[in-house]
Design a protein around this nucleic acid. Structure first.
Lengths: 245, 245
DNA sequence: CGGTGCGTTGACATTTCTCAACTGTTGTGG
DNA sequence: CCACAACAGTTGAGAAATGTCAACGCACCG
């Protein structure tokens, strides 16, 4: 066990430390540096539906999901709830808000019971960032990754046809199973997914139905099976909704 | 370091150096550090329409616009040309590609005659970034700013109604003149703006006509005059008499 | 002049939204 | 255990927004 516990309040428990270490852009970090980061961290538990922070609140920390899931959402001026992001275990969020915006731009809410987070307090972390130049590349990498995600999203939303947006989104989801029957788990409720893709739940439902009728998709609740990946890719790229491509 | 130790790129001329210094996130930098950054820089001139880099090319530099304008665009799978960004003098671009993606994700093209750029070579800049911890905050700040822009854009594109998207975009444009007759210059051609907002040129044209007919907008070529800012804001926010919740 | 390309307008087709009704599930309380 | 409400999801019909196609004006440029 690391015997350095008197400089800081009790560090987070080992499994959480592991989560922190596994963070994509913290992987290369020197163990001793990582420990100093952990010194800014504490554990947070949330019940399902509990609000972690609200839009407009001063950004004082960033977070890493250890278990459960966090949904970042906001209300559009049109009155829709928009899921900006759904964060899975092992991913971090709100770094950019901490580093620059000053305020959280979205609501953050736990979507599962007993969601566990690592909270990294902003002030000591920023101090550490100034003192330790080795930390900067990790932060820069993390920001670039977030940027790449957003660019993806902009491109997706620029597609005029609802079917293209959905198909493209599906292509970006983690899939499992054999190539001729790819399984995709929807991490969101269908109505949330619809809002995410700037369409109504009805339109989403009809798209899924049509693709089932066309025989290249199966829907079982919140799990989809793609029977023809080429067809999906074509739908993502073509403005022709009719298929026959 | 190798053979070409003395192949120091010629320092850029004073006005360009000034442009570099004025870069938002380089402002606080120590003069001597800024000079080292300038040591990675060289001047670039482009004719109107000339391609600076193409999508997919390896990202070896980032750029600052000194005069003229650069358009970042790409072709959507649907075949539309999509202007991802229009860069005005004093702004930088392609930092994120350099820092992380490895490849440029868009085409970059000069939209004005004799567009002048500062090109900062990636390799020496990255080396400088590693050596000089004081540079990292500037880079992080710049990335965060870009991130904020993209979030704006995602929110804009999430608006379902074309009128909302246009109104919201207009609200974000620099305006001049008295509040009761705000002048907004369109930096893009109308067809480019339409693509940027995920609509057709016809729809854009009809929206502008309708707002003129409603009496709160004037259009003179590529210059708009907003006679009723509140009306514009209302159009951006709740053009839907709706309550989908 | 005559071509070329942007922008506008009109007529029409298509997509998507809206509203409403209906299903199925889940959780609650009797 | 059942009735019930509450809610996600589906489906249908009609309305509204937007895309498509075509024609035209207009500026620019050789």
């Amino acid at each position: 066990m690391p015997a350095s516990a008197h400089r800081r309040p009790p560090l987070i428990a080992p499994p959480l430390l592991e989560t922190l270490r596994r963070l994509p852009h913290f992987q290369g970090l020197a163990p001793e540096l990582l420990e100093r980061v952990a010194g800014c961290a504490r554990e947070r538990h949330l019940a399902r539906g509990e609000l972690l922070f609200a839009r407009g609140g001063a950004a004082r920390s960033f977070f890493v999901v250890h278990a459960g899931a966090i949904r970042l959402s906001r209300l559009s001026p049109e009155g829709r709830e928009h899921v900006v992001h759904q964060i899975a275990p092992g991913s971090s969020f709100a770094e950019a808000a901490l580093l620059s915006f000053g305020r959280y731009p979205v609501d953050a809410q736990a979507t599962e019971e007993d969601t566990v987070l690592v909270e990294i307090a902003g002030e000591p972390f920023l101090r550490l960032l100034r003192e330790e130049e080795r930390l900067a590349p990790a932060v820069i990498g993390s920001l670039c990754a977030r940027l790449a995600q957003l660019v993806e999203r902009v491109e997706e939303l620029s597609l005029v046809q609802a079917g293209s947006r959905l198909a493209r989104w599906l292509l970006r989801q983690p899939a499992s199973g054999p190539p001729e029957r790819l399984a995709i788990d929807l991490a969101l409720q269908k109505r949330e997914l619809a809002a995410h893709l700037a369409m109504t739940p009805e339109t989403l439902s009809r798209l899924l139905r049509r693709w089932q009728d066309e025989g290249w998709l199966e829907v079982e609740g919140s799990r989809l099976f793609v029977l023809d990946a080429a067809r999906l890719a074509a739908t993502a790229g073509d403005s022709q909704p009719d298929g026959t491509a």
